[in-house]
Amino acid sequence: MANLTLVQAVRDALMTEMALDPRVVLMGEDVGLNGGVFRATEGLQKEFGEERVMDTPLAESGIIGLALGMSVNGMRPVPEIQFMDFIYPAFDQIVSEVAKLRYRSGGGFKCPMVIRTPYGGGIKGGHYHSQSAEAYFAHTAGLKVVIPSNPYDAKGLLIASIRDEDPVLFMEPKRLYRSVKGEVPEEAYTVDIGKAQVVRPGKDVTLIAWGAMVPVCLKAAELCEPRGADCEVIDLRTLVPLDEETILESVRKTGRVVIVHEAQKTCGFGAEISALISEQAILSLEAPIVRVTGLDTPFPYTLEHIYLPDPERVALAVGKVTRF
């Protein structure tokens, strides 16, 4: 066991899997010599050489298109998009090419790859270094969306994603890159894709979150305890495919739900979860489902602490659903 930060766990996963599987190659902007702007690939080029850890030209669509071709020809690419805010030039390659290749070719071609990208706010990044764009990609048939919230899951989920036969968008909560530490086994291990985790059991209210909003919900649960609400916190870990059972089981127990995410509210992934609960467990509900989310505005710079859900805002929402 080693005590690692989340970004160190990401690096550890890449290191571990590259040593085990010669097909694994990394590519992206500054991932080679510089080890990535967040140091997620630090030292890997030295370890595995320039052909397996490649500094590419500065073009996100090119990075993904290149990865697709490499994957089709037998490699297992792990391209990095430096910030999720920069992923949109690659939208067509991800949505229409990578995600659709297996289907459109009748299963003849496949292109497993892991698109790693740091996402989320709270780091004074402004509009172009803070976005949480999971909803666009969760709406994409053929793509899996995985988001860890702690170092152990980061390594296990990343290794599972690299070994997965489908393309995975692996979103890393950069706000947690160095702010959380945890015990991480040195060997290779996997955490199942498509399985949520109850990170805090409770009986009164279900809090549903992923990535950087998981610790926010855990803090909110602490705030709520003396106020008389025992919160259960679910870390989804994977948005696609969604672990519906873990959500529904909790909702049937608590009857009250607060969904928390950083992205803007309208058509955010919280809406999907809300619809799922309405479709599958409406008779279990004791109160309307409440979403605590970013605003329907572009992501701000100076006032980002107001834009982003924080423990107190979540606690207020818990008060609302318990008093209903």
Partner: peptide, 30 residues
């Protein structure tokens, strides 16, 4: 689309295959 003949699946959006071909050839080169 004929994977056994290395004939890659045709896409409708224009030129998407150009960069993909570069990736496939890079894998051979590596």
């Amino acid at each position: 689309s004929f994977s056994d003949l290395k004939l890659f699946s045709v896409s409708s959006p224009i030129a998407t295959q150009v960069i993909q071909a570069v990736g496939a050839s890079l894998a051979s080169k590596i």
